[in-house]
Design a protein around this nucleic acid. Structure first.
Lengths: 209, 209
DNA sequence: TAGATTGTTAATCGATTAACAATC
DNA sequence: TAGATTGTTAATCGATTAACAATC
């Protein structure tokens, strides 16, 4: 039975399922049961069936799940075939590294442009992505369809820049600044990568085993 | 009452508390109640008191918490004053960006060395951190105390490299490869930064609001 | 003292796990 | 058909929230 409200915990497991299924595909596995999938992922079979059942009926009794079909269903749920468009704000070391190394296309995103304040990079291209002046942001956003912005800018300007982008109608933020961004509009979504938080939890766990 | 088993959910909130308290400190706030802290962080006062009570009694009835003191207590719990030592494996775009931009010292870590296979970077220094050949890994680890390694290497060599490091006794992995690493030793801790997983959850949420 | 706020116990809520009828 | 495995309902477990006596 499809559910109305999907919990955050379920959503966060979806990319892991997708990753595991992609791996199974590449290993040539055709079908898999919730039990075997659970063994590989350290998740109970019950949870797997519960999770999938939030979105539909993808399996077959007595058989299990077709790997390729299930992968494609979960990809669809995650929106990898939605042709999302993205621009990057801030092309410092980290922004540069993402443009060079992160496979945006594998998650269904196209990077159309990047913006920075430094004359040294404005007008150049990184991995095929043109870098414009942050002064041209308003014009650009009004003329293009942008689903998500990546914030790879200094902490100090994070909330201000986010506000500027929200005023332009941006509703998806992939936030790499170590700042908790917020909005009064519940339709605006923030996804944070907090490096420091992550390393601190590791610090805690190596000190408390 | 101090608890024996701290749940993962609590641990993951600690760095956020630490961040918020650092901010309060810098704003000159001296004391705060669980209620006001909760308002600022969008957490119930109950949860805050529950969380803190896992580790001790840091507040005072009728007063609340001393911001600076509480910050220091939580920092101590997280291990920021433990003088953890860290080496980086793989100095590509991302490794480079982290060495240049991430403030390791703010989380109590010292980066002593980095390793790579590329002759172009071996022997050089990035932000004061010497880059050695991956061939010298064994010797180095045996001669130095290393608490955590950062894995910023290609997916394809992730698990093998991790195994090699585990054999050398490394028990803390900050893993930036999009691979689920595992170990049979429960004392080995992995903390993953899965960029793709993060962006996919954002993709899901902008498509389903 | 009176008001505020803690730490903790009890109640509620939600998520995970177990069980099982349905059925391929 | 018999065995396997699903989707779903019920039971359990754990985490969050509410309530309150203790006390600064």
């Amino acid at each position: 039975m499809k559910k109305e409200n999907i919990s955050d915990a379920v959503i966060r497991r979806l990319p892991r399922y997708y990753r595991q299924l992609t791996d199974l595909c590449s290993r040539g596995v055709i079908r898999i049961s919730s039990h075997s999938l659970g063994q590989e992922m350290n998740i109970t079979a019950s949870q797997i069936r519960q999770d999938f059942s939030c979105f539909g009926e993808f399996g077959q009794q007595g058989y299990g799940y077709n790997v390729e079909e299930l992968r494609s269903e979960i990809g669809h749920i995650l929106g990898v075939d939605n042709d999302h468009h993205l621009v990057m704000i801030g092309v410092g070391n980290l922004g540069h590294a993402l443009l060079q190394g992160f496979l945006f296309s594998q998650t269904g995103f196209t990077v159309d442009a990047a913006f920075d304040v430094s004359p040294a990079v404005i007008g150049t291209t990184v991995n095929g992505v043109p870098i414009y002046s942050l002064n041209d942001l308003e014009t650009y956003i009004q003329e293009h369809s942008v689903d998500v912005v990546v914030l790879t800018i200094p902490q100090s300007v994070a909330q201000d820049t986010a506000n500027r982008l929200m005023n332009l109608g941006i509703k998806g933020f992939w936030n790499f600044t170590n700042v908790e961004l917020s909005s009064s509009d519940p339709d605006v979504k923030f996804e944070n990568i907090h490096f420091a938080d992550s390393l601190l939890t590791l610090s805690y766990r190596i000190a408390n085993r």
